[in-house]
Computed example of a mutant assay.
Amino acid sequence: MTAIAPSPVRRGVATLNPVAKLLAALLIALPLVITIDPVSAGVALLLELPLLLASGVGWRRFWVRTLPLWIAAPAAAVTISLYGERSGAEVFSWAFVHVSEGSLALGLAAALRVLAIGLPAVVLFVTVDPTDLADGLAQILRLPARFVIGGLAGMRMLGLLTEDWRALALARRARGVADAGRLRRALGMAFALLVLAIRRGSALATAMEARAFGAPGRRTWARESRLAASDVAVMAGGLVISATAVAVSVAVGAFHPIFGPS
């Protein structure tokens, strides 16, 4: 008798509707992309802490999933500080490198913006089930059913690419053609993987058409997707975070829109 592993218990923000998570992340990100000051990004990052703590994501999973952000943020800060627009007093200069007070502030703002925009997006979507997201996009946002179901089918097929790549590598090694020329081998496997993906996509499209996935008329759904009070609350929280960040930036005179005068 085979034991069935219990599904992981979802808690906190993980239980919210995926559409609510999507809209909350957009509400947080949109105001931050119109300004390049460090104050608004810093305030937003501070206000996001309760949301990150209530995400239901374990600490190990959190650090693993957000590792690219922790690498990208200081990299962006260093690059902009060294090669960004010069303003204010010059701190350091060598060849093409000109570090000024303005470029340092701009680098700090870039790092904070990467974290303030990226952290909630990653944490909110790390627990999203693709089927739940598709249900919400079609039923709540009223996106075309054919587009949503096609996207869901494509997302479900992404996991097969890894297995196909592994099978191709084993097959080539069994035929003795994987011992030299790593670059050439990788290009050949990539082309073979592309051919397999196209063939599988064509077969999947034919199967879905045969099951009337592209039929006209109103479509029914196996699972109903609705916004609960907690979903509205997290979207309101995203709006409050962005509005507070911009308000504080304007109040202290640090607000610097990207489309405004330099």
Results as ranks from 00 to 15, higher is better:
I36Y: 12
I36L: 14
D37F: 05
P38K: 08
G42T: 04
L46G: 14
L46K: 08
L47T: 03
L47V: 09
E48L: 15
P50Y: 04
P50W: 03
L52Q: 02
L52H: 07
L52P: 06
L52A: 06
L52C: 01
A54E: 12
S55L: 08
G56W: 05
R60C: 02
R60I: 00
R61W: 10
F62H: 05
W63L: 14
V64E: 13
L67T: 13
L69H: 06
A72G: 02
A72N: 07
A73V: 00
A73M: 10
A76V: 11
V78I: 14
I80V: 13
I80K: 02
L82R: 08
Y83G: 03
E85A: 15
S87T: 12
S87C: 11
S87V: 11
G88Y: 12
A89Q: 13
E90M: 14
F92G: 12
F92T: 12
S93A: 15
W94S: 14
V99L: 04
S100N: 08
G102T: 08
G107M: 01
L108A: 11
L108K: 02
L108P: 00
A110V: 03
A110R: 00
A111G: 10
A111C: 05
A111K: 05
R113M: 02
R113Y: 06
V114Y: 07
A116H: 04
A116T: 09
I117E: 08
G118S: 09
L119S: 04
P120D: 11
P120L: 04
P120C: 08
P120Y: 02
V122M: 03
V122E: 08
V123T: 11
L124Y: 15
L124M: 15
L124I: 01
D132N: 09
A134M: 12
A134K: 00
